[in-house]
Nucleic acid binder design. Sequence first.
DNA 1: TCATTTTCAATCAAAAACGCGCACAATGCA
DNA 2: TGCATTGTGCGCGTTTTTGATTGAAAATGA
Lengths: 268, 268
Amino acid sequence: MLETERHRIILSAVQERPVVTVADLCALTGVSEATIRRDIGQLHLAKKLRRVRGGAEAIAPPQFVGINARPFAVNQTLHIAEKRAIAQAAVDLCEDGDAIIINGGTTTFQMVHPLATKRMQVFTNSFPIAEHLLKQSKNTVLLPAGAIYREQNIILSPFDADGSSHFYAKRMFMGCRGLGPLGLMEGDPLLVQAEQKLIGQADELVVLADSSKFHQRSSLLLCPLNRIHTVITDDGIEDRTASMLEAADIRLIVAEIAASDRQKRAEE
Amino acid sequence: MLETERHRIILSAVQERPVVTVADLCALTGVSEATIRRDIGQLHLAKKLRRVRGGAEAIAPPQFVGINARPFAVNQTLHIAEKRAIAQAAVDLCEDGDAIIINGGTTTFQMVHPLATKRMQVFTNSFPIAEHLLKQSKNTVLLPAGAIYREQNIILSPFDADGSSHFYAKRMFMGCRGLGPLGLMEGDPLLVQAEQKLIGQADELVVLADSSKFHQRSSLLLCPLNRIHTVITDDGIEDRTASMLEAADIRLIVAEIAASDRQKRAEE
DNA sequence: TCATTTTCAATCAAAAACGCGCACAATGCA
DNA sequence: TGCATTGTGCGCGTTTTTGATTGAAAATGA
């Protein structure tokens, strides 16, 4: 058993399980405890894992920081004022009783707050959105089948056939990574899959994109512009971008940022 | 039991309820009160929870207000010691990597704590179970499609075709309203629907039923006894009931109630 | 208020985990 | 082949953790 081989096994085991004991690793590699301890020591110094008494654990256990804190804490604060205003404008399009689809994302997540007082039928592939609406509102919440992907925080079925096929809605709301002349772009292949399953289940496709999104580019083209019916953005949008959207026959809604949020935007 | 493993379980338990007692955590982890106190002290210093007299509480006061005053809460405390022991025994049947199905219910919910340190594939129609496992463990979590029913706290599709058809598991764990010579009985038609969708997706059907369930009757018969492979219960089970189960060729597992929890049972 | 019960903190002994040194085997290099 | 280097396992003393005990402190109830 080579040293690097062991290291690979140890790292693999640590990733898989929340914790591994020294004895576990002995059994797994067939070497003595002393060697395992030495290995753990090395890997600890190399910051590949955290050494704990009795064994080792993965560095930065996800449940204590990432997911649990706030959904997508990183992106959450970026352009928050714009996102909030855009989300508000999006919810303003709806009324009680409507059936809508909300695709997961940090922008669309902001819709949960204005939705708290509504009573609608909300289909979403976002676990945090579902959780929030369930706890904080009286909306009917519907989910697609699938596995919960922790990083993206969405529910996605590995099977094409599964999913949302029975749910049709008046509108589908989605965010994106970028929005350009070519169409809607997304950064994560998983998100592309999730979104493509949902597009077509609604009469109207509404894209929520703060004005910074018009300068973002990505390699994954989700759909062309003409699939989009409505874009909601903030007043940072440039005239030529607005022209481009109008040329594609897209309804453009420019959301007013709440006065109390203006300072926040300035701070960024 | 590794220290970090304990910490995980403690945090898991603290999330679920507003407060957990030292005795609760003893029962859950199988260590002494002194150790639990030390652990709580550490986690308190690390600001992972708040130490209170008699136990610990979550650091972030639960945000859910009136709405999610879960119907769970009522049943949650009933026969809690038995349920916990039974759930522990259920999880003991599993090992990392297994694919299992967990049907929603208060008994099965208790499985989340021992599951906190596992790494399995868990398919569940229970939103609270999914939520907890997502936040507190590294298990893969899979969901069926459907609407979230608030009262029962489960996800159920109004369409027969939808659902879990692609997920097969080694074992399915479920609770019930009652268990008698006729078979498995449930109290809520919605639960019957949900459970019938899942039965048959697993090699082995494991029923978690504390001994009080053997005296419950209900009008809704879910399935006959011969569909059940294993029953896990507590030592309150009567001999003639045990005989009945064995006559039906059911494996019977009697879970040991943790010593520190015995008093609780006496109180009820 | 006081007695009783419950919970907590301190202490200590046993057990487990750890680190160190050394011997030995394996490997690489001249 | 001879030699150096590295990796590995074992023994033993040290450190850490754990559970039981005991007395103090806090809560409870009359």
